[in-house]
Design a binder for these strands. Structure first.
Length: 327
DNA sequence: CATCGATGTTGAG
DNA sequence: TCAACCTCGATGG
């Protein structure tokens, strides 16, 4: 379920609580028994995210590649230091909103609206498309619940993976090969070269821009929500062929993705609306249906012009857009 | 409590 | 183009 921002947050969680530690690796469900045996006992030496893929590096040159697909999720438990998470409305997003600038958590929230990371404490944290924290008491390590494909366990922290699309052990060369097939991820590479690569990839294809934004070989990390929202924010007709976009339109799309991904990683939420009043900010944080311009709003009035938002299947995914604003 | 649907990708046909 | 993968929150009775 997660788009790029959640995967970065999960990688960050591993960096905090697992990197530098020897890890017991098992597969309670059994489907990853061989891979678990390969990794068991090794020290985790790195955790990186590229688009929707995460790579955990272990000593000896072995990597664990995980893709959560549509169902996948990680459950952390133990002495963990949780990421800053926007809890409620404190500040206003619009205050320091310049496109292309990544908002820091400090920009986004006032007191009490952020649970900051701080010292490790005993907690459970569910990480998928959204995150849920549970401070109630539990035994450590917890009994595996359901089909746990992989359990990673240190002296103090536990991480259970369930429902992934991909979970495999790779060599460094194989990791490089996977990454080579992916378009740029702004959090890994926000260079002019990365931007040029995306612009060129879009402008040489005749496929509709709505399809190209979802194509992980063009640009990494965009899913169905960010796709719809990026196109609305650019006031672009989703069916415009890539090669019909101007260079500037392509650059603006990339810059806006840089911005939105930064907001997503900072807040843990796919917040795609700017300049919200305090009341709207409260509503947006409380309900995902108040968080977007067009996503999941078929038939409802466009927030800008009132025209009913349209929905159509494109490559088996629901595409949402405003037929008036995005003409 | 049953059913539906999802923020993804792969591979068969 | 479409089913399969595989899990769980949201929804409705």
């Amino acid at each position: 379920m997660p788009e790029g921002h959640s995967v970065h947050r999960i990688a960050r969680q591993f960096a905090r609580n697992f990197v530098g530690h020897a890890v017991r690796v098992s597969s309670p469900q059994g489907r990853f028994a061989d891979g678990a045996a390969l990794l068991n006992g090794r020290v985790m030496t790195g955790a990186i995210a590229v688009g929707k893929q995460m790579f955990l590096e272990f000593e000896g040159g072995l990597w664990l590649r995980v893709h959560l697909g549509i169902y996948g999720a990680w459950d952390f438990a133990g002495e963990i230091s949780t990421d800053a998470t926007i809890r409620s409305a404190g500040g206003r997003m619009g205050q320091t909103n310049h496109r292309g600038t990544v908002l820091g958590v400090d920009d986004l929230a006032g007191e009490d609206s952020v649970r900051s990371m701080g010292a490790p404490r005993r907690a459970r944290l569910h990480m998928a498309e959204s995150e849920k924290e549970d401070d109630s008491d539990f035994a450590f390590p917890p009994d595996p619940v359901g089909a746990v494909r992989v359990r990673l366990l240190t002296e103090t922290a536990c991480a259970d993976l369930r429902g992934p699309t991909a979970c495999e052990v790779l060599t460094v060369d194989e990791v490089s090969a996977v990454i080579a097939r992916l378009g740029p991820d702004p959090l890994d590479d926000d260079s002019p070269a990365a931007e040029d690569r995306v612009v060129a990839a879009i402008r040489k294809k005749s496929a509709p821009i709505a399809l190209l934004l979802m194509d992980q070989s063009v640009v990494s990390g965009i899913g169905n929500v960010y796709r719809a929202e990026l196109l609305f924010r650019a006031r672009l007709d989703p069916f415009t062929p890539g090669r019909a976009l101007t260079e500037q339109q392509c650059r603006d799309l990339w810059r806006d993705w840089v911005y939105l991904l930064g907001v997503g990683v900072a807040t843990g939420q796919m917040m795609t609306m700017d300049d919200l009043s305090s009341d709207d900010w409260v509503r947006a944080m409380a309900s995902r249906d108040e968080r977007h311009w067009v996503y999941h709003r078929a038939g409802e009035p466009c927030r800008v012009c009132g025209t009913p938002i349209r929905m159509q299947l494109l490559a088996n995914r629901k595409l949402y857009w405003c037929p008036a604003c995005q003409a």
